[in-house]
Structures are given as C-alpha cells and as structure tokens.
Design a protein around this nucleic acid. Structure first.
Lengths: 189, 189, 189, 189
DNA sequence: AATGAATGAGTTTTCATTCAT
DNA sequence: CATGAATGAAAACTCATTCAT
C-alpha cells in the first residue's frame, strides 16, 4: 500500500509541478493534472484536498529540495569566497534547471495566507543559511548583506529564465561575477 | 470629449490600480472596478477593451511614472556615488509608497505575452538607466553590474512590503547600505 | 425596468414552481429552470442568489397565497359551522389544484434552517387562523383543536394527491365529512 | 453465514437509521454509514445494493415495527374507546421515541417509485388496522374516519418533533385529547 | 466475505463581456 | 457616450459505486 500510494502521490506532484510550472496556477486545471498523472480526476482529491493544497505541496517539495541541496553543497567547501561562489552557483543553477517551470515562482494562487507564510519562512531560512556563511567571514549587518546577495543573484537569474539561448556555462560565469562583485564591490570611483 | 473622457479614463485607472494592487488581478472583478470608479460596468469597456488590457494600462502608467521620476531625480545630482544613492532611494521609496498595493507586482494575469513583453522592456529600460550611470563611472560589465544593483535593491524592498512597522527612515538607511555595499563590496576576508 | 424585471422574476418563479413541484428540489437543475423560464442560466442568479433561495421564494409565494385566500374566503361566511366548512374546502381544494406539484411539499432542500423557520411560522399562522374561528365558537383548548382539525384535513388530502381519479367533487365531499366529524365526533359507542 | 452475516446486516441498518434519521437521505454518505457500522465501505454493498435500497430497508424495518407493536398493544384491550386511546398513545409515543430521527420521515430520496409504493402500502395497512377497530364500533365511512383520526394524531405529533421541551407525559395527554375529540367531537355550537 | 483505492459523471455558481436602449 | 440586464462558458469538487486483491 504505502509504496503504491507513494507512487501515485509522487506522480501527482510531478504532474502538478510540470503544469503549474509551465502554465501557472490559475491556468492549470485539476483534470489536466489528473490526466498528466495518468489517473482519474477524483483520485487527485484522495491525495490532496484542494487545488491550493496541491500547489502548496508542489512548492514545499521544491523549496525544501533547494535548501537541502544548498546545505549539502556548502559542506563541501571551506573558505568564505568559495562558499559565496557555491551559493551563487547553486542559486543560478537551480533556476537554470527550472527554465521551463518559471510560472511556479511568479504565478501562485493569490491571497493564500498559508502559501504566503510558507514562502516567507522559506526566504527567512535561505537568508539565514547565507547569514551563517557571512558571519564566519565576520560581516557586519549580515542580514542586510545576505538579502543583498540573494537579491543580486535573483535578478541575475532573470536572463536565464527569459533568454532561451542562455547556457549552463553562462550561468556559472554569472555566478562568479556575482560573488566577485559582492566581495570586492564595483570598484568604481 | 477630451476632458470629460480623460477624467473617466483616469478614474478607471485609479480604481483599477487600487483594486488590482490590493486584491490582485484574479480577485478583482470588473464590476468592482466600475463601482469604485463611480461608473457603470459597460462603460469600462468603452475605455479598455478587456480586463487584461486594463491591467496592462495600470501597469504601464505605474512603470512609466517610475522611470520618469527616476530620470528627474538623477538630473539633480552629479557624482556617481550620489547617483547610485538616488537610484537606491528612489527604488525603495517607490515601494514604500506602494506598501498597500503589492499585489500589482506579484499577482499579474498569467500567460499574457503582451504583459510579459512590456515588463521585459521596462526592466531593460530601468537597467539601461542604471547602466548609463555606471558607464560614467567607467564600470566594466555595466549590464551585469546594473542588474546586480537592481537585484539588491529589489530584495531589500521585501521587508518594506512585508513588515508593516517599516518606516520611511528605515527605507533610506537601507538605500545607503545598498549603495555602499555595491561600491565597496562586503569587505570581508 | 420594474415591470420587465418583475416579468422575469415571475417567469422564474413560475418555472421553478412547475419543476420543483413536479420533480422535487434535488432533481431539478437550475439550467432546467432557466430553460423553462426562457432565459439564460446566469440570469436566474440575477434574481435569486442560489437554488435554495429560489426554492424559498417559491414556497413563500405559495404559502402566502394559501393564507390570503383562506382569510378572503372566511370573510364571506358567518356561522362557525360554515367557517369550518370553508377551512376544509379551502384546504382540500388547495391541494386539489396542486395535484401535479406535490413534490413541493414533500421534497424540500434538507437542513435549510431558513426554510424550516419559514414553514414553522407558516404552520403557526395557519393554526392561529383556525384558532380564531374556534374561539368564536367558544372552544376550549383551541390550539389543540385547531391542530387536530388541520391534521384531519391534511391526511384526507392524501388521496387527492395519490389517487389520479379523484375529482373536485370528491374533494368537497371530504371537506364536509371532515367538518361534520370535527363538530360532532365519530358518534360511536 | 447466517449469524455473522445477520450481525453485520443489522449493524448497517442501525447505522443507517441513525444517520438517515438525524441527517436526512441526501446528507448522509455511504462512507459515513460504513464507518458508523464499523465496516468498510464496499461491505455495505454486499448487503444492500444501493443507497436507496438501504433507505428502503431502514424505512421498512421501522414501519413494520410500528405496525407490529400497534397490533400487539391492541390485543391487550377490548372496548372501542380504549382501543382508540391505545392507537393515539402508540402513534404519539412512537414519534416521541424518534424525536432525534425525524429526518427519516421528512427527507426521503425523491422520485423513488418503490419507496412511494411502500409508504402507500404502509399507510393503507395502518389505516386498515384502525378501520378494523372502528368497524367493531359500527362506524359508518370507516376509512374516512380512520384517515381523519390518523391525521389528527399526525399533526399533534408535530409539536413533539419540534418542541424539545415536550415530555412523554405531554404526549399521553395529547393522545387522550385526540381520542376524546374524535369520539365526541369539538362540541361547540 | 471483506476491503478501500480508484473512478468519473454530474451540477452549481461566477463573472468577463456584449448590446439594446 | 453611458448604461446595466442578459449571457453562457468554464471548472472545482463530491460521492455512489466498482472491483482487484
């Protein structure tokens, strides 16, 4: 049971990730999710109690993966510079891999307090992970620093999402640029 | 026509800005916009051909105001550092003033190519304005620099939007922090 | 407006009366009501906010007619006996005229407190009308008397509803029987 | 089979009686019946072929009990007056005991010919039982008499069902009132 | 006999948009 | 230009019933 059950649970999440990600929350129909998952409409409701609930689950799985992977990768390095580089690469690489599922980030169900709360908490967690790195480097105002760094990365990811010709290579270059800029500043005048 | 017509046009835009901004695109009904504007439902369609069209117009007006105001403010200063400071202050102040209308930025109609195109072009224009400032300072890779700066600011704005106790004062402090970080870097290690 | 509006309002009530009455609440679809009324589905909702609301309105109109007509008819008579006869004839005649719409009484939406409240109040009003008549005749325990009389009539109506060969003539005979029985008793042993 | 099977059969009927009675046919879910009966959903269908079938069975069991008990009680008395009293007490007491399960009588599945047929037959049987008593007293028009008496009782039961403060004592008083009224009439004017 | 996961038909309601006045 | 009554497409969700185990 638990295995079969899990299989279907996962199939639904995968289908929903695909459709929410490429089409957006409002544009995706539950019947499409069911079809994509290869099951009946009613079955989706055996695993998720509503469309919003399903969206939350998709988001949660994705965000948790993001944080887990980040922590995993950070372990592998030691210097501050390399850690900042890893953060940047992870951030950009993450979006690079999700080029085709951008709607997940931009087109969430509106006015869902639970989702807002989760995203807030996710952002906080992400920021704290960066803060920890910065503190080892003795940064002052580490929270603003962390926010700024994440912000830089977040904007740099945009081209990835919108420019189809963007390569993974390009993503890594951008990551290094961001790390450098953050550490040394623009060094102008 | 022109004056009375313009008055109504503006009233609709104001109403739509208010409602889209505080409730989101999908949650706002055309009938509510009409009511808020003090006119009949059908009349809205004399000025805007669809709900999406209206949203576009609201967005466009807001973004144009953003860019115009920025250019205006930049004229008043001369050094690179002060210009960067002005950009940051303008960015954060802009969102500070729109605390109550955040949905405009997060809850747009999905899958509207025209809107995506416009936002892309707006971002490009904003970036070019920053690029121009950076070029005067002799920056290399000015586009990436500009994106990064804008990204920093964009993330720092988040607290403004989510933290109700944020003051205008706080916004300005953040702006200076951002400008400083951008110019000198984190200066760690 | 008011006239046209009223026309449509009435058309919907008539259609709903017909369909709820012959098919029952749960079996009647709003789309059928609209079709029968010769309008579009959405239009029904301009006049009644929900299916239950519509059912309430149909019921209310019918019950009010019942009470008004009764009071009208009672005015035309003076002796107690004739008044009791009128009540009986009115009761049975009322159901005779609604032979084809019995579901209205048996198949209401379940668990609708508003409807239950209204029916309770209607029954109370009906009973009070009968009580008033009985009091003029100096009856003791007039409420129980009234309830009993109404009960007799209500049961006698059953054949009307279920026996298709029942004639209006038969209904009047039954009415006289009931009045006689009520006044003089079964007179057995 | 017989014992275990019967046990389950009975458990389902009990559960269904409870739920249909307190919630109504349409509001009760087969899954709830199964849960209340302590078995699996599919098992219900081994004993009853459909929800309507189950409702029929619940109704049938209840009505049969009603008639059996009535006949039992009638045996214990001999005079006409005492028999009429017993009928009244039985009728009112029956509903008194079912105060919490009134939906069974008011909220049946619509448009089920089998159920309508059964209820008709039940009413006929009940009436015939009363007719038999009346005939012994030499009544004329015994069927109309019987219907009327049952009708009186049926209406008097209403307060029992709706007035929570009603006591068993009150029920018996009402029974005597009804018997008296039926035999002697209202004795007014 | 018993289970409970899976099915999918079926209906209310909303709301952007139209168009006769 | 302005109105607002009328339209009807569109989708989430429920739940009786089935059937493989």
């Amino acid at each position: 049971m638990s295995s079969a059950s899990n299989q279907k649970h996962t199939a639904i999440l995968d289908a929903a990730y695909e459709l929410f990600g490429s089409g957006g929350f409002y544009e995706t129909k539950m019947s499409e999710v069911a079809e994509q998952a290869g099951i009946a409409k009613g079955t989706v409701y055996l695993y998720f109690k509503s469309k919003e609930d399903l969206f939350m689950a998709v988001t949660r799985r994705d965000c948790e993966g993001f944080l887990l992977q980040l922590q995993e990768r950070l372990k592998a390095s030691d210097t501050l510079a390399s850690k900042l580089s890893i953060i940047a690469k992870h951030h950009l690489n993450y979006y690079y891999e999700r080029k085709r599922h951008t709607k997940l980030f931009f087109r969430a169900p509106n006015n869902n307090p639970e989702l807002v709360a989760y995203m807030t908490q996710f952002m906080e967690q992400y920021m704290q992970d960066v803060v920890k790195v910065l503190l080892e480097g003795g940064a002052s105002e580490p929270e603003l620093m962390a926010q700024s760094y994440i912000g830089m990365l977040d904007r740099l990811k945009m081209d990835i999402l919108f420019d189809p010709s963007f390569t993974e290579e390009d993503a890594y270059k951008r990551a290094d640029f961001a790390a450098g800029l953050f550490i040394r500043g623009a060094m102008i005048t």
